[in-house]
Simulated assay, not measured.
Amino acid sequence: MSRTLRAVLFDLDGTLIHSLPDLAAAVNRLLASENRPALADEVIRAMVGDGADMLVARAFAATGGLPGPEVRPYLDRFMADYEPRSAETTRPWPEVEETLAALRARGLALAVCTNKPSRATAEVLAVLDLARFFDVVVGADDAPAIKPDPAHVLVILDRLGVTPDQALMVGDSRNDIVSARAAGVRSVALSFGYAHGPVEDLGADIVLHRFGDLLGVV
C-alpha cells in the first residue's frame, strides 16, 4: 500500500463486529409482534447491509409482506427495541482491537462508514469500547446518501481532510467496495463478514481472511 496512506475507513457490521445475533433477535421480536414466523440467522444475514429500513422491509417480505402501507412505523418499532439491546451478544471480530490500536500508533486517522443508523452505531461502539479508536463516525443519517453511494465515503474524507488516494476502505460487502471505487478509494474486502456471495467477486483491491492481516498491507 502507498506510503501516502493517511486514513483507513471501516464498515461496521460484519467488518469490525459480529452483530448478526443481536440483529436477528430484534428482527424476530418484531416479526413475533405481528404473528409472523421467525427467520433463521443465515436468512437474516442475507438481508443485512443496506440500512435498517431495508432489513425490516425484507424481513416482512419474507414472511408474507409488510403489514401496513409504509415501512416507517415498523422501522421505528424495530429501532426502539434494537438500539438499547444492540450489543447484548455483539462482539468485535478477533484481532480488531489490537489492529486498530496498531493503526493508530502508526499515525493513521480511522473512521467508521456504516449504513447502520447513527444512534445504534454510537451505542455499539460505546458498549464495546471501540469509539476511542475513531476520529470520525458517519452512520446512515449522518451522510447525504448511504453506501453504495460514494457520498458516504466522500463526506468522511472531507471531515478528515484527506484525498481519495490517501485513504483505504475496509469492508465485507458489495456496498463497501462499490462506494470506495466510486469515490476513488482503494479497498480491502474481508472474507469472514456478511458478503452476499463470494467475497472474491466483490472487486476489492485486496481480500483478507484475518483482520490482523490488515497491518501487512497498509
Score class of each variant (00 low, 15 high):
residue 91 R to V: 15
residue 95 E to W: 01
residue 129 D to Q: 15
residue 119 R to C: 02
residue 152 H to V: 12
residue 128 L to I: 11
residue 153 V to L: 03
residue 94 P to E: 11
residue 131 A to N: 04
residue 103 L to R: 08
residue 112 V to R: 00
residue 101 A to F: 09
residue 147 K to Y: 03
residue 76 D to F: 03
residue 120 A to Y: 01
residue 97 E to M: 11
residue 161 G to T: 07
residue 139 G to E: 00
residue 88 E to H: 13
residue 94 P to C: 12
residue 163 T to G: 09
residue 139 G to S: 08
residue 93 W to C: 09
residue 90 T to P: 07
residue 141 D to N: 14
residue 92 P to N: 07
residue 87 A to F: 01
residue 143 A to E: 03
residue 82 Y to E: 05
residue 83 E to L: 08
residue 144 P to D: 00
residue 149 D to L: 01
residue 83 E to N: 06
residue 101 A to P: 12
residue 85 R to C: 11
residue 127 V to W: 01
residue 74 Y to R: 08
residue 90 T to N: 06
residue 123 E to D: 11
residue 111 A to N: 03
residue 155 V to N: 00
residue 108 L to R: 06
residue 81 D to F: 06
residue 119 R to W: 04
residue 112 V to G: 00
residue 86 S to T: 03
residue 117 P to F: 03
residue 144 P to G: 03
residue 120 A to R: 02
residue 106 R to V: 13
residue 104 R to Q: 15
residue 76 D to C: 06
residue 132 R to H: 09
residue 105 A to T: 15
residue 149 D to V: 08
residue 86 S to E: 05
residue 157 L to G: 04
residue 99 T to H: 02
residue 157 L to M: 07
residue 152 H to M: 12
residue 89 T to A: 14
residue 83 E to I: 15
residue 99 T to D: 08
residue 100 L to A: 09
residue 147 K to T: 10
residue 95 E to V: 10
residue 79 M to A: 07
residue 78 F to R: 00
residue 105 A to N: 15
residue 157 L to A: 08
residue 148 P to Q: 05
residue 90 T to I: 07
residue 83 E to D: 11
residue 97 E to S: 15
residue 119 R to M: 11
residue 88 E to Q: 14
residue 157 L to V: 02
residue 124 V to N: 06
residue 135 D to C: 07
residue 129 D to C: 11
residue 94 P to S: 12
residue 126 A to C: 11
residue 101 A to N: 12
residue 119 R to A: 15
residue 81 D to T: 08
residue 87 A to T: 08
residue 143 A to W: 01
residue 112 V to T: 09
residue 139 G to V: 03
residue 114 T to F: 05
residue 112 V to H: 04
residue 102 A to Q: 15
residue 125 L to V: 06
residue 117 P to M: 06
residue 120 A to F: 05
residue 126 A to P: 02
residue 150 P to G: 12
residue 144 P to I: 02
residue 128 L to N: 09
residue 118 S to R: 14
residue 134 F to T: 09
residue 122 A to G: 10
residue 74 Y to A: 08
residue 98 E to Y: 05
residue 89 T to D: 09
residue 158 D to A: 15
residue 135 D to T: 14
residue 141 D to H: 14
residue 111 A to D: 10
residue 149 D to C: 05
residue 144 P to Y: 05
residue 107 G to E: 12
residue 115 N to D: 12
residue 80 A to I: 07
residue 103 L to N: 10
residue 132 R to I: 11
residue 107 G to H: 13
residue 144 P to M: 04
residue 159 R to Q: 13
residue 137 V to Y: 02
residue 118 S to Y: 09
residue 163 T to M: 11
residue 139 G to C: 10
residue 119 R to E: 13
residue 78 F to S: 04
residue 145 A to D: 11
residue 139 G to K: 01
residue 76 D to K: 10
residue 153 V to M: 09
residue 117 P to G: 03
residue 159 R to K: 13
residue 85 R to F: 06
residue 160 L to F: 02
residue 152 H to C: 09
residue 75 L to Y: 01
residue 112 V to Q: 05
residue 95 E to H: 14
residue 107 G to A: 12
residue 130 L to I: 12
residue 114 T to L: 04
residue 131 A to L: 14
residue 103 L to E: 10
residue 141 D to Q: 09
residue 143 A to H: 01
residue 93 W to F: 15
residue 120 A to K: 08
residue 105 A to R: 15
residue 160 L to V: 05
residue 124 V to P: 02
residue 147 K to G: 11
residue 90 T to Q: 02
residue 157 L to Y: 07
residue 151 A to S: 13
